[in-house]
Structure formats: C-alpha cells, structure tokens
C-alpha cells in the first residue's frame, strides 16, 4: 500500500459520495448517464466475487490468510458495491422522472461484446473468476463512454457532475502512478492487463481533464464543451 494507491481509492470513494450528494441535494440525476452507472454495478459485481471467498474464510474462523490488506479491500469492495447499486436504485426509483434517458443513447452491446471477447482471449488464467475479473477491468476502462456521449450531446455539465467526472477519471490516473511505483519497488509485481486497461481508461478522460482544469482556473462553475 502506497500513498498513490490509498489516494486513488479515497478519490474513487469520494466520486460516489459526490454523485449521491448531488442527486440528493438537487433531487435530480439530469446529466448523469444511467447506462454508465449500470455498467459500474456490473464491473464491481464481476470483479468482487472473491468477497464470497473472504466471507467463507471468516465464517469458518479461518483467519490465517486474512491480512490487514484483505480487511481493507473487503471493506472498500462492500462500500463500492453498495454505493453503485444505491446510485442505480435512486436513478430508477425516486429520481427516474429526472433521468436523461432520451439522450442516453449509447448502445451498451458495443462495449459489452468486445470486452467479453477480449476477456475470453486475453486473461491470466482460464477460470470463471479470472475471466470475470478481466472482463470487469476491460469494461471499467470503457464504461464511461455513455457518460461522455451524454456530455457531448448536452454540451455542458454542472459543477458537481464535473467534480464527479474528475474524481472517477483521477482515481485511475493515480492507479497508473501506483503501478509505476509498485513496479519499481516490488520485484515480482506485474499486471499488464490492468496497466493497459487503466491507461485506456485514463486516456478516455483526457479531454475532460483538460476542460475541467481550464474551467476551474477561470473560476466558472459550469463546464461547457466547445460546440
């Protein structure tokens, strides 16, 4: 665990709270892509199936392999799952009437199918858990595409939506730094699947970061994209 990794996780956690706060405070989810949020629930569900393994060890009092890092990861995984499911729940229940569904036109199969095929071909181990983990890594990299498409369609984002996008993009960018750090300091550390996907994910946010910083610097609250 290094400072980049922990900052990344906290930024990721902050992104959920920013989004939930925004939706609760404005009683609206306008400008937020339901499809992107739905993809995040799928990402975490596929990636964190090992929670059952940890849970299984705990209820059988097999604590030999449970370290501080396992407890930290388990705690965060449960938080991420709960937050992403709660967001999807909010968007489909009390805030449904404010949802931008008509403009949320991205075709999810265009990312789901390639990610599934890639996960079946390029994985570290041909097991169900490992393939689902790999699928989640690939899907997370591109899950923001419906959100970006909605942003381009709308042409602007309010202040909280921009902060949310910054937090989601920033977290993976910090993971890139974390991977460089770990590669330099841990002799056997290497995870090219996560590295490549993480790079793609951060690159997708590239344009957004640029406009975000320009707007923050100029002191504008709302982010308007050039038409």
């Amino acid at each position: 665990m290094n400072i980049f990794r922990i900052s990344a996780d906290l930024l990721h956690l902050a992104s959920f709270f920013i989004l939930i706060f925004k939706m609760k405070a404005t009683k609206s989810c306008k400008g937020i892509s339901f499809k992107t949020q739905l993809m995040y629930t799928l990402v975490f569900t596929c990636r964190y199936l090992d929670l059952f393994h940890v849970l299984g060890m705990m209820i059988t009092f097999n604590f030999a392999h449970i370290t501080g890092l396992t407890l930290y990861n388990t705690f965060m995984k449960i938080l991420f799952l709960a937050a992403s499911y709660y967001i999807v729940y909010l968007m489909r229940t009390e805030l449904k009437s404010t949802s931008d569904d008509a403009r949320d036109t991205f075709v999810l199969w265009h990312i789901l199918a390639p990610c599934a095929v890639l996960a079946l071909i390029f994985n570290a181990q041909f097991t169900i858990l490992e393939i689902l983990w790999t699928f989640s890594i690939y899907l997370e990299a591109v899950a923001v595409m419906p959100q970006l498409m909605l942003l381009i369609e709308t042409g602007e984002a309010d202040s909280l939506s921009s902060h949310y996008m910054f937090a989601v993009g920033g977290y993976r960018a910090l993971y890139l730094v974390n991977w460089v750090y770990r590669y330099a300091t841990e002799p056997y550390y290497s995870n090219w699947i996560a590295w490549i996907a993480g790079f793609v994910q951060t690159a997708l946010f590239g344009d957004f970061f640029y406009y975000y910083f320009v707007k923050i610097m100029s002191g504008d609250a709302a982010l308007k994209l050039p038409t």
């Binding site: 990794r5 990636r47 090992d50 392999h65 370290t67 890092l69 396992t70 965060m76 974390n178 996560a194």
Partner: peptide, 10 residues
C-alpha cells in the same frame, strides 16, 4: 493454495 489475493487492488 491461496490465490484469492492475487488481485490485491480494487
């Protein structure tokens, strides 16, 4: 035997 922690990141 413990491969669950192979992915020690979130």
């Amino acid at each position: 035997d413990e491969d669950f922690d192979d992915h020690d990141e979130l």
